[in-house]
Each structure stands twice: as C-alpha cells, then as structure tokens.
C-alpha cells in the first residue's frame, strides 16, 4: 500500500514536471516568435518605403541608374527570400545598395535639398537602426530557447513534441565593392 502511494507520488511529480517543462518551452517559443514579429514589421516598412524613395530620387540622379536598379533588385530578392540565412544576405545587400545611394546623393545638391528625400532618408536610417536593435533582442531569445531545447532533461519533452531549434538572424554585410568614385 505504502509502495503504491510512493509510486503514485512519483508519477504525479513526473506529470507535473512534464506539464511545467512543456509550458516553459511553449512560452519561450512564443517569445521568439514575438521578437521576430518586431523585426518583420520593420523589414516590411523598409520594403514599403523603397518605391517612394526611387520615385523621389529618379528625377535628380540621371547617372546613377545602376545604383537604383541594384536597390530594386535587392528589394525584390529580400521580399522573396526563403529562410533566415537567405533573408539576412538579401537584407545585407539592400542595406549596402541604400548606403551607396545615400553616399552618391552627396554629389547632387538639389537632391540633398529635397524635403521628401530628407524625410525618406531619415525613415530608412531609423528603420535600419530599429532592425539592428530588434535583432539583438531576437537573437537573445533564440539563444535562451535553443539552450532550453538542448538541455537535459527538457530535451526529452522537446523531442516528443518536435520543438526544433530556431535560427539566429544575422544581416550579412555585402561583399566588398569598389568605392564609388567622387568627382570634384
């Protein structure tokens, strides 16, 4: 009888632990998803701002067709990217292309005086900063989640219910390119 009770007690504790472990994993996974949503909002906003930017800039920079095309291409690639690694690479390309446009815009005083352009430049700069800061929070969450999934004994629960490791999000700087020529 006593043995029976002890056995029941052990089973009850095991079941309670099991519930706790499962709920903990769910909470962590939701936090990862929430952190990702923060990044996603900013990336979408950046993609939405770009057509406006191209429209504004087009009339001023006749000789920078290549730069503008590279921005459009990078945007399309980023919007169609599958998986975090590909997305990080595409977003990196986009950041590089935008940086080049802002660098060459120094050569066009009329463009630098355009209020619309200045407002868009501020929005794009800020969006990129926000992605950067949100990325930090996301990666911290992923780290906590992945550690929990791999740790004993939570890994048993994780395997049973197919909790899988999440990827970190890194924005890769594009390959080195030639510095745009500045003519005086």
């Amino acid at each position: 009888m006593a043995a029976m009770l002890i056995l029941l007690g052990i089973v009850a504790i095991a079941v309670l632990w099991f519930f706790g472990a499962y709920n903990g994993l769910v909470r962590l996974r939701n936090q990862v998803q929430n952190a990702w949503a923060q990044i996603d909002v900013q990336l979408k906003r950046r993609h939405d701002l770009i057509p406006n930017l191209i429209e504004t800039v087009k009339g001023y920079v006749k000789h920078e067709r290549e730069t503008l095309e590279s921005i459009t291409q990078a945007r399309t690639a980023a919007m169609q990217a599958n998986g975090l690694a590909a997305l990080g690479k595409a977003e990196g390309e986009l950041s590089g292309a935008l940086g080049r446009l802002f660098a060459v815009s120094e050569n066009y005083p009329e463009l630098k005086a355009n209020q619309n352009f200045l407002a868009l430049q501020e929005e794009l700069t800020s969006t990129e900063n926000k992605v950067g800061f949100a990325r930090q929070a996301y990666n911290d969450q992923v780290m906590a989640y992945n550690t929990r999934i791999e740790s004993i004994p939570t890994n048993i629960v994780a395997n049973m219910f197919a909790f899988t490791k999440k990827e970190f999000f890194e924005i890769q700087a594009p390959a080195e390119r030639e510095v745009p020529k500045v003519q005086f």
């Binding site: 501020e122 800020s126 926000k130 800061f133 949100a134």
Partner: peptide
C-alpha cells in the same frame, strides 16, 4: 524615431 529605436 530615435525614441522608438531606443525603446527597442
């Protein structure tokens, strides 16, 4: 924008 960046 700066306040929002720093909030994040």
């Amino acid at each position: 924008n700066i306040v929002e960046e720093m909030k994040i």
